[in-house]
Design a protein around this nucleic acid. Structure first.
Lengths: 340, 340
DNA sequence: TTGAAAGCGCTACCAT
DNA sequence: ATGGTAGCGCTTTCAA
């Protein structure tokens, strides 16, 4: 069933059918009602979205570009909460949600970026080429957790949160402190970092957190050298366990671990207990994000709260009405609980 | 940048550019390489997806139709795990994922269903009209957690799992057993059910679970009447708390609760503890799904395992290659832990 | 191996 | 208030 077929069936022009759906003021109410009723009877449910979009350039679809592959985001509580916030607002706005990976290899010779009307870019895409293609569409874009010149952005106060966490840790411990970092470099491996390979601070929230940890260390007469900072590629149990094992094998054993996500902190906690260590007596563990599990675990995790759901809601509202908003930085705060 | 513009720029026909992207065998390798290189230079990243789809009817997008609004699915661990499985497979297949709500009101006069090439329908859509529109597209469809005539479906053994859970409970307790159900009727309210309003068993996994509970009760000389079955609208903390409060206020107090999701069981557990009850001594609590939290909480939740991630993977594989698969029912099994 | 041209389904302009 | 029609960007047949 196409618009043309309906027009023929009802003996009116295609323009009239189109108007019945898109511009009610262009025809009499009675004709419009008649047409809409007949369309229902004939099984025509409104203009084909692809064809309409070709003509108008609009689909009502909001693209959410993720930093990595799609599946990663459903494993990460933080990302899931963010998407929850986004989808709440899109639901109300009657917009659909297209998820797009941030890796170039996923776009084999098709310009999928033409489908959505607007974009939320959640974290710096792994391949910047993908971002460039997107920007060239001249559609509303909101970047989240990083900034892009001439575009609206939404960030949280990573430096402030991390600083508070580190200040708290350094004021409580006399021993060695280590960092379990997240995506600080391009490396896929888990291991100590090499500062020369760090991502740029403007593009990497992890880098911002690291700076805060280091500044705090300095303020407490301690140095957080490369030999005390581990990198992980994903905020997963596996990566966290690997890094924590290496870190806790250091001699002398660290007395505190600053983890860049709660997921990593949870893994570190498990490793510490397997080694027979008491938390926080033998080793303090502090996370980041404040995912629900941080509150539910025993012991509960000391961490930095960031408003993930709210971030999603706001990102969606910003991209739907860019003219009404300005770039923002949302606050974070320290949640002292049992592990630190 | 359009294909036409590129063609003009390079002094070849539009057909040749199109072939360079879609049918490499139709032109010389050298010309193709030249064209692809020039396209990159000119910032043309391949054919516009909307236009191509208008012509070919294919977009490389897989639609996942959800039973309800989008946001609900990001709050539900089960749904999130399912989507994780789906997206793993779609990642590998280089397909994109369009999330679509299952409520009619979200499709205001636009036939969005023309965009995806294939559909996974996760749970019976709240409004069947949406499903009908979808089916009329004659695209591959896989239904999950319900069946649809002439279409591939993927289910789990709800009856079997629920039966094992109930048999376990009835063999352990002499007192009153209540059910905290999930979407057993259309009602948005939390409260006791009226059996005459129950959904049809073929469309409702909850109904299947209820039948299993009731059959098990009968086998143990007990009757699970309407006054012992609560309905909730969403598998959320709030709904669970409300239902559990009412149920535990019964006189005599129930000694076991069969909950249709772990989320509801978690809420019931919290209510029981707030009332000063010991679990499982005073009241046994059994869930369904086996979400990660069920293992992590203290006490750990006795529940029925269903393979949510695997269900997602399989649904995606089925919809990508419908001819290679048949409808299936995946097994479930009882996980006895501390609460029951 | 390459090119010309029709047409996918629709909307927006301009006529009437 | 309604209709005629060009053209959005592309693919595909057919002809050269």
């Amino acid at each position: 069933m196409t618009l043309k077929a309906v027009a023929r069936e009802l003996n009116v022009s295609t323009a009239t059918i189109s108007n019945a759906f898109n511009r009610p003021d262009q025809l009499s109410a009675s004709l419009r009602d008649h047409i809409l009723l007949e369309c229902k009877r004939l099984g025509y449910h409104g203009p084909n979205a692809a064809a309409r979009s070709l003509r108008t350039g609009a689909t009502g679809i909001v693209g959410v570009m993720l930093a990595e592959r799609l599946s990663y985001n459903f494993r990460d509580s933080c990302a899931t909460e963010f998407l929850q916030g986004v989808s709440e607002v899109l639901d109300d706005a009657r917009a659909n949600l297209l998820l797009m990976p941030g890796r170039d290899e996923f776009y084999h010779e098709q310009s999928m970026e033409s489908i959505p009307d607007r974009y939320i870019v959640y974290g710096p895409p792994r391949d910047l080429s993908v971002l460039n293609r997107l920007v060239r569409q001249h559609k509303p874009v909101v970047t989240v957790d990083f900034t892009l010149e001439n575009h609206l952005s939404l960030n949280v106060d990573n430096y402030g949160g991390a600083r508070k966490a580190a200040d708290h840790v350094f004021s409580q411990t006399r021993g060695d402190v280590v960092v379990i970092g997240l995506r600080l470099t391009k490396s896929d491996d888990v291991g100590r970092i090499d500062s020369s390979e760090l991502f740029d601070a403007s593009m990497s929230i992890s880098r911002q957190r690291l700076e805060a940890y280091r500044d705090s260390a300095l303020a407490h007469n301690y140095t957080l050298g490369d030999d005390r900072v581990w990198n992980t590629h994903e905020s997963t149990w596996a990566d966290g366990v690997k890094a924590a094992r290496e870190a806790l094998a250091m001699n002398p054993r660290p007395t505190a671990m600053l983890c860049m996500s709660d997921q990593l902190a949870l893994a570190a906690l498990s490793v510490a207990r397997d080694m027979g260590l008491s938390v926080p007596e033998d080793v303090r563990i502090v996370g980041f994000d404040d995912i629900p599990e941080a509150r539910q675990m025993h012991p509960t995790i000391t961490t930095v709260y960031q408003p993930s759901i709210e971030k999603g809601r706001l990102a969606a509202m910003m991209v739907l009405n860019p003219e009404r908003y300005e770039s923002r930085v949302l606050p974070t705060h320290l949640q002292v609980r049992e592990t630190g």
